[in-house]
Design a protein around this nucleic acid. Sequence first.
DNA 1: GCCGTTTTCGGCCCGACTGTTTTCAGTCG
Length: 575
Amino acid sequence: MPIHNADIAAVFDEIADLLEIQGANVFRVRAYRNAARTLRDLSREVGAMLEQGEDLTGLPGIGKDLAGKIQEIITHGPEGVLAEYRKELPQGLTDLMHIPGLGPKRVKTLYHDLGIKTREQLHQAATAGRIRGLTGFGEKTEQKILEALEAKAGEAVRFKLAIAAQYAEALVEHLKKAPGVKQIVPAGSYRRFRETIGDLDILVTAKTGSPIMDRFVSYDEVDQVLAHGSTKSSVRLKCKLQVDVRVVSEESYGAALQYFTGSKAHNVALRQLGVQRGLKINEYGVFKGEERIAGDTEESVYAAVGVAWVPPELRENRGEIEAARAGKLPKLVELRDLRGDLHAHTKATDGRNSLKDMALAARKRGLEYLAITDHSRHLAVAKGLDPKRLLMHMEEIERLNDELSGITLLKGIEVDILQSGELDLPDDVLGRLDLVVGAVHDHFELSRQKQTERILRAMDHPHFTILAHPSGRLIDERAPYDVDMERVIRHARERGCFLEVNAHPERLDLTDTHCQMAKEQGVLVSINTDAHSVLDFDNLRFGVGQARRGWLEKSDVVNTRSLRELKPLLTRTMS
DNA sequence: GCCGTTTTCGGCCCGACTGTTTTCAGTCG
């Protein structure tokens, strides 16, 4: 079993937990957490990097020691490295730290004073009232622990961005009606367009004395009030989404927006820049000693430490601060840059709307072209098209193009990539289309090597244009199939084909880091809705968000081209 | 344990809320 970056990151996080319980130096703990994060964000496998003789100490937060541990974990597995830290503490103890209200200190107390090692033992002790007497604990803490254990809270629930958006928009509307409210904006990972949201952070500026917090905690979708202060309140909604509202004065709006947008890692890095300049940055402003020198706008905060304003989608501490410092931030692609959509379905297969309805909906969005890419015959469950039906479909598209103005339909197919890597329709049929979108819809279980070769072979086909949803994942529902995305991206460059960013909120596939990798390799990306109804064009904004998180600019996205510029790109130039 | 426009040592981001305290530790983000 190959060891992936995420596995090594998990080992480092466990070490960090164990060190915290042991009361180790907090900065040493942080070093392990930083390294874990670096590994999770990395678009390449460290195993492959080591094989190619690359030096891991070039990676942020990885020094000589941790590079050695990574090597050890890859060569001999994680047990040896972990054993060293597990010596003094039983395995599984770190699990207790994931229970809300329990951190390293309390877990240590529970273990040392009562010998508690598992959730079950903790539950027994809490039920028997043996927790409340421990130092640092009380009746309320005991009760909260009990509730957390019984509610199985602590299992991190994340919400897909599009779902969170529904709750966020409704809540913002509710809060707006509170007297004295001036500005109100969702910040946090929501503003950064992360594909899933752990909780929702809403920033409010309001006149002093505004009853905003009372209005917030009494919102009828609130299930539980977790905290209720004058500047900070937290609730859990009935849908289980946690929402934090922070109120600041108007002069602190920029600093607070910057602060609550995060990410945490980005903010830490920005503050370090501040420290180097003798400045303190917090949610109220930028301070030189006692003097407040910036903070009314986000731009002023960044300017105070000598860097350009960073778009929220880039704020992950993946090099954006260095780029901002050097004046080399990308000019990110925007929704309005998109001129067309290269992946959509109709009633002919598993879509809900007619060709004409889809065309008109796309035109209404201001799109200049829409590729109709219904399924091919192999996907029987979707009534996939055989050559005969496809040819009829193409004729219908041509007729409609004659009839409509302001939108051009392109003749395409979402053709199944068969297990062998062959495409599901004959070459002469594929050759009559404007573009061929290839996709894997079955045999997700193939080995990494077979899956990769299957896809590479499909891309070799002379008519292949775009690889749809390249990893096949459904967020939180289906893991990506095992495929060497580095090879796929390199192959796309060699063969001159494109990779999709599927804008459906459950897919968002390519991921942000793979977008970045595609850009580095010079592979163009197509932001497509994969629309199955006229409503799905709304999803384009999520696809754009994902592309922006991947540092993509207008020129990196193939469907920002006008139809005239696009056409020659669709004709593959095979070398 | 990492890192360097104060560089190989001595720093390492900052504040709110809660509960358990009697001035603050722990947790969280």
